[in-house]
Computed example of a mutant assay.
Amino acid sequence: MANYGPVWRSLIGTAAATALLAGGAQAGETVESGISTEYEQFDLVRVAGDLEHPWSVAFLPGGGYLVTERTGELKHIRRDGEVREVAGVPEVVARDQGGLLDVSLHPDFRDNGWVYLTYSSGDEDQSYTAMGRGLLEDGELHEFEKLFEQDRGGGNHGHFGSRLGWLSDGTLLMTIGDRRQEERVQDLSTHTGKLLRLTEDGEAPADNPFADRDDAQPHIYAYGLRNSQGLVVDPADDTIWLTDHGPRGGDELNRMEAGGNYGWPDVTLGREYPTERPFGEARRSDDVIPPIYEFLPTLAPSGLALVTADRFEAWEGNLLAGGLRAERILRIVIEDDEVVHMEELLHGKIGRIRDVREGPNGHIYVLTDESEGGLYRMEAR
């Protein structure tokens, strides 16, 4: 039996933790049964509704979920379906695309109880993408501490990026959007439009690709990104997969490399919004790492999962990319860095897809970005 330490037991109580360890069905309402795909069948279950623009979900040991709402609340959805607000979250600038964003548990959460959050900090005039952590205990976050804040903010409250992902060495990846300030993205002296690699304390690891350069931010792992809201790390080999919003067109799936330049805004497959003329200087360049795939038509990608469990046996090794505007999930089959097959899932069934995650039980979980959004579970038959 797993060792659920005092931090986790204090969140839900010893008796409840014991009951969860004993097993039992999770709560939920079946929305549709026997949804057929090319290789799998699944039931779609609504775990919880009435969530206000939920942004991210993390899985608690033994069952239950933490869900962020962009408006600034963190919700604990118990295994029995009851929803409780978690106190102690940081103050956020909940405006436009900003607010309370990603949530991730420390890899050693059972022992240390740390919950990591990304959010928009600052004020109405100038906001920043920030990251911090607090100790989850007795239903609230204690001693919340801001660990990182981007060096330059913006007055527009858009393109925060803000996805998190853990590498096997215990370092933490974090995306920072371009904040609609394209001129900063190719500039290594700022965090704008970058993928960062941080220690668990929010510092820059000494072996980051630009750590020894005086003209670069030491936190940067890769650059040339617009607004990356899909991020997943393959636990087998630490391959980093990332989806990035383009302008009109140009939504990308990228395999990330240390020190890599992914082109934005100089080299892009996207086009200008008003005119549909090509954006930037070129569609390809020898100095820029090209995407593995360009999503056409526009996906507006947010949320990215890798299927690792055998519950969806035919999908094992596939990526699942959520789409906001497209209101669908794309199942993506990749061989030798080439997309060889794709399939649409849940197209138009539940609305704008904000997050997609594989749960510890092998089910696939989905959040919808709506004023009355929900957490859904895809259960294989």
Rank of each mutant, 00 (worst) to 15 (best):
Y376N: 04
S228T: 13
W166D: 07
K75Q: 12
E182K: 14
G34Y: 08
D287P: 01
V340T: 14
M174E: 08
V267H: 04
E124L: 11
G165M: 02
M256R: 08
S120N: 05
W241K: 00
G134F: 00
G224Y: 00
D102L: 00
V356Q: 01
S285M: 03
L117P: 07
R46Y: 07
G193A: 09
L147R: 03
W264C: 01
S168E: 04
E343W: 00
R152D: 02
T68C: 05
G260V: 09
I329P: 00
D96H: 09
P360Y: 10
V93M: 11
R357G: 02
T243Q: 02
V288M: 09
A204T: 12
E379Q: 13
I334F: 10
I332Q: 05
L242T: 03
L196D: 04
G132N: 06
P265C: 12
F295H: 06
A211Y: 11
G362E: 06
G374K: 09
D238M: 10
E145T: 14
I353M: 10
S121Y: 05
V232M: 01
E85N: 15
L196V: 11
G348Q: 11
I289C: 01
L253P: 13
D266Q: 12
L20S: 09
Y39F: 14
V339C: 07
R284H: 14
L225K: 02
L141V: 04
R357W: 09
A87D: 09
P218Y: 01
E343T: 02
P209N: 05
G351F: 14
A258N: 11
S371Q: 14
T190R: 10
P54T: 04
V307Q: 12
L304I: 07
P209L: 11
G63E: 03
D337F: 04
D178C: 06
D238C: 09
R357T: 06
L330I: 12
E257N: 10
E38H: 14
L198K: 01
V232C: 10
A17Q: 10
S104R: 06
M378V: 02
L242P: 04
T37R: 13
R255K: 15
R271E: 14
R311W: 03
R352A: 06
L195C: 09
F210H: 03
